[in-house]
């Protein structure tokens, strides 16, 4: 019998496995957020050491300045932000290294976020361009955060998003950091079962960060007050992707469900 036929038969036979295995696989661990916590916990020791070193550096610097008769209060104040910055940068660097070690993550299709398709999708950078392709080799790190505030701190820009979208109960906060300095902030909205509903992204610069390039048959441009031109992609029933550029930033909204134009633009209006 042909090997390919046998493989397809095996795939088909998967449909007949015991129900208990199907139901078990539909259970969801707390998505991504758990991974983040684990990742940060794993490097908490390193983070602590770096933070302690930064504090010592700050105290040492301040002490030396104090001991030199020429020091002034304003000079010692200059050290405080420097020490603070050092701590923050070290923290980020370690978190990034941690993700790479555990995953060497190439965020693709996803997912589920796949969002591709629907949603979360895949981001890969090749020669400075975003690509739709899944890849194991793209050179970027993913940072996961427990809150929007933390995500904004990491991305170093404000990110206005709705607290929830229709049907969502949970949010995940991701920051994709590329080795050329480019970074994408992403908020994922999931339902009770961990299924992805919507992905909203923001990045500095002007490019399509939706991961959707000719992925739908219908495309339309709409002028929206206070935003400018919004590009919509979908089919004859509505739209699943919106992306636009405003104020030097790129934005995208991707939904798993096809939305009406009004519903999609309502979502767009909540992003800043």
């Amino acid at each position: 019998m042909d090997k390919n036929v046998n493989v397809k038969r095996l795939l088909r036979a998967m449909s007949d496995v015991d129900d208990k295995y199907i139901e078990e696989a539909m259970e969801t661990s707390a998505p991504a957020r758990r991974a983040v916590t684990t990742s940060l916990r794993r490097y908490s020791g390193i983070i602590g050491v770096v933070a302690a070193a930064a504090i010592l550096l700050f105290i040492g610097g301040a002490l030396m300045r104090f001991m030199s008769s020429s020091s002034t209060q304003s000079e010692s104040a200059d050290y405080e932000p420097a020490a603070h910055n050092m701590e923050v940068h070290s923290y980020s660097d370690n978190a990034v290294a941690g993700e790479e070690q555990s995953d060497s993550y190439a965020y693709a299709q996803g997912g589920s976020a796949d969002p591709q398709g629907t949603t979360a999708a895949v981001a890969e950078i090749e020669e400075g361009e975003l690509s739709l392709r899944d890849s194991d080799t793209c050179d970027y790190m993913r940072l996961v955060f427990d809150s929007l505030d933390d995500l904004e701190d990491s991305a170093q820009f404000d990110f206005g998003v709705p607290e929830e979208v229709d049907g969502s109960t949970t949010c995940n906060y991701f920051n994709y950091v590329y080795d050329n300095g480019f970074n994408i902030a992403e908020v994922q909205y999931l339902d009770d079962d961990g299924n992805l509903i919507c992905v909203i992204r923001k990045a500095q610069g002007e490019r399509n960060i939706s991961d959707c390039d000719d992925c739908f048959s219908v495309e339309r441009r709409v002028d929206v007050d206070d935003i400018g031109t919004v590009n919509l992609s979908g089919n004859n029933r509505g739209y699943a992707v919106a992306y636009w550029i405003h104020g030097g930033y790129s934005y995208s909204v991707t939904t798993v469900e096809i939305l009406s134009e009004d519903a999609m633009l309502e979502l767009v209006s909540q992003v800043s």
Binding site: V17, A25, S29, D103, G110, D114
Partner: peptide, 18 residues
């Protein structure tokens, strides 16, 4: 069974892709 990609599975369960 569900046809999820590796990344989707990693996301769903909070596992590393590797």
């Amino acid at each position: 069974f569900f046809g999820d990609s590796v990344n989707e599975i990693a996301e769903r369960f909070g596992f590393g892709k590797s």
